[in-house]
Each structure stands twice: as C-alpha cells, then as structure tokens.
C-alpha cells in the first residue's frame, strides 16, 4: 500500500539524517584531541609517521561517508515532508 511505502521512505530519510549527524560526531571525535593524540605511536607504515597516515585516512573515510550520504540526503531535502517551501516566483528567476 502506498502509505506503507511513504512511511518506509520517511523512516529511510530520517535514518539518513541520523547517519549524517553520526558522521559529523565521528569526525569531531576522531580528529580532535584527545583521540587524535593517540595516533602518536612508534609505527611507520611505508616509513610514514603514523599520525600523518591516521589523519589522512580518517579524512578520506569521512569524505567517502559524506559522498554516500549525500545521495540519500538530497532525496530527503527534496521530499515535501521535510520542507514545504514552494519557490516563490520572482522577476529574476523567470528571466
């Protein structure tokens, strides 16, 4: 039934929003002290100091997560349940 589908979509979107805030919090925790300080260890993959590897790997993972979420969040942004603003016509946009 249509309403069940809508409900599913709605929940799916809310999930996406929850995930986006989870991603943000993960970024803050992983990239700020004290967590980032824990990366100072005596381990050098390919000779690179671990802190450097750590920061860039976390960064890359955040980007990947954001790219994955962007698609779903865009759908959520365009859904009428999230916001119901109608673009108000103006001279400029019609030109």
């Amino acid at each position: 039934m249509a309403s069940t589908e809508q409900l599913d979509q709605h929940q799916f979107r809310r999930k996406s929003r929850d995930r986006s805030i989870a991603l943000l919090i993960a970024g803050l925790v992983l990239l700020l002290p004290p967590m980032v300080g824990a990366s100072i260890i005596d381990f050098r993959p390919f000779g690179i100091p671990f802190s450097l590897v750590y920061v860039f790997v976390v960064w890359a993972m955040l980007i990947a997560g954001a790219a994955y979420l962007a698609r779903h969040l865009r759908a959520a942004a365009n859904s009428p349940t999230t916001n119901n603003l109608t673009t108000n016509g103006s001279v400029d946009r019609q030109r």
Partner: peptide, 26 residues
C-alpha cells in the same frame, strides 16, 4: 618514492616539537 621521502625523517617533524594535538589544534 614515498618511503624515500620519509626515510630518516624524525617523527617530530610531523608531530612537532611541542604537543601538536593541543589547544592550538582545537
């Protein structure tokens, strides 16, 4: 290559002499 760049580079060059992940980082 990458390994050559970082060979015989002391870790302090990356993490700084002072604590790099301190208040200034935040």
């Amino acid at each position: 290559g990458v390994s050559d760049v970082f060979s015989d580079v002391p870790s302090e060059l990356v993490t700084g002499l002072d604590e790099v992940f301190g208040p200034r980082w935040i």
